[in-house]
Amino acid sequence: MELPKYYFRVRENGAFVFRVDTENRDRRIEMDQIAVINIRNGEIKPHGDRELSETDLEHIKGWMAERSEVLARRDIDDILRTVDHLNLTAHWAQTRASAAQLEAVTDALLLAMHDLRTVLVRKKADRLMKDRDG
């Protein structure tokens, strides 16, 4: 099995990029950090005094595009899971929750749902206005 030429150590908003080398005299895996990348702003910073080759940049940009797609899919999946959780919460509140349990969560849930509803209604209205105007 051949190892990839690059390894991306994921961090919150991007990754550290390493070049993987197994072609050394001891046949050990060596990982040499070559860059730090930021997915949010698209920034690619060479590590230290390194200069990135076109091949390095090609691999890094490809990984960034793929990672952005993965994160976007995860966002939607997380939101759909939230819908499931809201449905489960409604069922719990209706069928199993005690008065004390409801007292402990009602205000927080109502405020969070009110905030979400306000944002969703405003965004929906903005989209409808935009579609109507052009």
Results as ranks from 00 to 15, higher is better:
P4I: 01
P4R: 05
P4S: 06
K5W: 01
Y6R: 08
Y6I: 01
F8T: 00
V10P: 00
V10I: 15
R11P: 00
E12H: 09
E12P: 01
G14S: 03
A15W: 01
F16G: 06
V17P: 02
F18G: 03
R19D: 01
R19F: 11
E23D: 13
R27K: 15
M31D: 03
Q33W: 01
Q33V: 03
I34Q: 05
I34M: 03
A35W: 04
G42L: 07
R50N: 15
E51W: 01
L52P: 03
S53L: 09
E54M: 02
T55Q: 10
T55D: 13
D56K: 02
E58S: 15
H59E: 12
I60M: 08
K61S: 13
W63L: 11
M64W: 06
M64P: 03
A65T: 10
E66C: 05
E66V: 08
R67Q: 13
A72C: 04
A72W: 07
R73V: 05
R74E: 11
A90W: 10
H91M: 08
H91Y: 04
R96G: 01
A99T: 11
A100Y: 14
Q101Y: 06
Q101K: 08
A104I: 02
A108S: 08
L110F: 10
L111M: 11
L116K: 09
L116Q: 02
T118G: 00
V119P: 03
R122V: 05
K124I: 07
